Computed example of a mutant assay.
Amino acid sequence: MSAVSTPLADSTIMLRRNLKHTTRNPVAIFNAVLFPIIIMLMFVGVFGGAFSVGADYVDYATPGLLVMAISYGLGATATAVNSDMTTGVINRFKVMDVSRGSMLTGHVIVTTVRCLVSCAAIIGVAFAMGFSPKASALDWLGVFGVIVLLSLGAGWLTVALGLAAKTAESAGLATVPLIMLPFLSSAFVPADTMGAGVRQFAEYQPFTPIIETLRGLLLGEVAGGDLAAAVAWCVGFVIVGYVWSVSTFNKRA
């Protein structure tokens, strides 16, 4: 087997392993798929009439709920990575003929797949609730690209958090900021309707330009500045998460 095919084959094996672990963990499935749908039903169906956003609320809220669908499943990844590190699984892999990079890549890929499934579920429920996007085929391709890039960035950051944490419990708690940040963005109400301090935080935190980019693409009116900022933040997540993950892995494993 060639030097190139071995890491690819090992990553595929790790992907199958992590997918099996995910399907056997009902809590992970609930947090990643069902809970974002519950949040959507609550905000759109219960609170949506109280918000004035200049459009149908389901059209406004869906982009933010896509980002929330990505963030809500990250705790399972952090816990799984930490468990591999602290229970000796990674040490057992080290003495086998297994590519070291595949151990981390498998977790990132399964996180990305889980995020895509979650986002597909959100979009399906949104259509059932009256979602009416004006996106062209190219816009939908852009939505898919942003979601994949954000999922990869969030995946690498979460793997890094899982590797750095001392226990599985602290690994899960470390992802809470990533879960809470969408609530403090323009996901559910425009940032300019917020009070002083909160408004500035919402405008300059990373998830707001990502959400605004998705919203613009879905409504057919994406702003170039938001798109550039969204891509920059997502690429930054990937780079920081990857470098942090590899550095921590080499130190601890």
Rank of each mutant, 00 (worst) to 15 (best):
S11Q: 03
F93V: 12
E203W: 08
A171W: 00
P209C: 13
M194G: 13
R92C: 09
W244I: 01
N31Q: 14
S83E: 14
L104R: 00
L161A: 07
D10H: 09
A187F: 12
D192G: 12
A160C: 03
T167Y: 05
Y72H: 10
H107V: 02
T158Y: 02
L138F: 12
L65C: 06
I211D: 08
F183W: 09
C119D: 05
T167G: 05
G236S: 09
L173M: 11
V125A: 10
F188L: 12
A120R: 05
V176C: 05
T193V: 14
F127P: 14
T111F: 03
D226I: 04
A121H: 04
G124K: 07
G153C: 08
L104K: 01
G241P: 01
A160E: 02
G101N: 05
A50L: 11
G216M: 03
P63V: 03
G145L: 08
T208R: 06
V108H: 01
G88C: 07
V108N: 01
K251E: 07
P63C: 03
A154W: 05
I29N: 01
P206R: 07
S170M: 09
Q200S: 15
A61I: 06
V110K: 10
L219W: 05
N91G: 12
T105G: 12
P190K: 04
T111G: 05
V235H: 05
Y204V: 13
C115N: 07
G145M: 07
V95M: 08
M180E: 07
F131G: 09
F144A: 15
L217P: 15
V113E: 02
A196F: 11
F43E: 06
M68I: 15
S11K: 02
T248I: 00
V67L: 01
Y57H: 03
A120T: 09
S151R: 10
G75S: 14
L157F: 00
V222C: 04
G130T: 02
D139R: 00
I70Q: 06
N82C: 15
G225H: 01
M14N: 10
V238N: 02
T22A: 10
F144S: 15
W233I: 07
I210E: 08
F237L: 11
I109C: 03
L157Y: 00
D10T: 03
S118R: 02
L104E: 00
V148F: 09
A187C: 10
A3T: 11
I123L: 05
T12F: 15
S71D: 07
T62R: 01
Q205H: 11
A9T: 13
V231K: 11
A160D: 02
I210M: 14
V125F: 09
G142S: 12
L227V: 04
S83V: 09
L34Q: 06
M96A: 15
T6A: 04
F47N: 08
S71C: 14
A80P: 10
